[in-house]
Design a protein around this nucleic acid. Sequence first.
DNA 1: AGGAAGATCCGCT
DNA 2: GCGGATCTTCCTG
Length: 213
Amino acid sequence: MIAADAVVLGREFAARPTLRVARALLGKILVHRARDGITAGRIVEVEAYRGPADRAAHTFGGRRTPRNETMWGPAGHLYVYFTYGMHYCCNVVTRGDGLPEAVLLRALEPLEGLALMRRRRGNAALADAALCRGPANLCRAMGIAGRADGTDLTRGRLVLLDAPAIPARRVARSPRIGVAYAGADAALPWRFYVRDNPAVSRAPSARMARSAG
DNA sequence: AGGAAGATCCGCT
DNA sequence: GCGGATCTTCCTG
């Protein structure tokens, strides 16, 4: 359960260097008080995307498009994008001051609204740990879609709650998933996850690691 | 203008 | 492991 006195994270939490925000997001809680019910989960896997210099980022090279506009805005907002013709993925915008960086939320450990998550996923047989495993599954289970793009996470119905940090011995790092096209940047260890947590998505495949070289 | 590939997932093999 | 779903953006001609 979520503590009744849990504090909503403020803008200053996200307005820091992106790698630090990524690491600090592990253990924090994402809550969505939607019309069809409340869902919440603890963040157990994230990836950092560092703006113009990062070949894997949507804002690589300083590209500014309608899709990535939210990344150019203030920290603490939610950047939601649509991909592969059918999936949404969501990010916490970091930095601010015109630095278009963000942290992709890849997996949550479900805490509240598990029945609603199963309904949204359209699969009543899913194990708890599978409900928010993977960035698109996470969005689906949490009821996050394109209209949530640009939402201010520091107030409103979709927020981040403070919670105890994950101790260093339980945090693992790896290259990011699915960015083999990014050349040398594909090898950067900018994925952070909670070691041995069953809600964490797959490790990078050997094939992906090879093609990243 | 048209084609290709993507910060993905699922079902089948 | 592989292909299909089929939107957004980029690159080429």
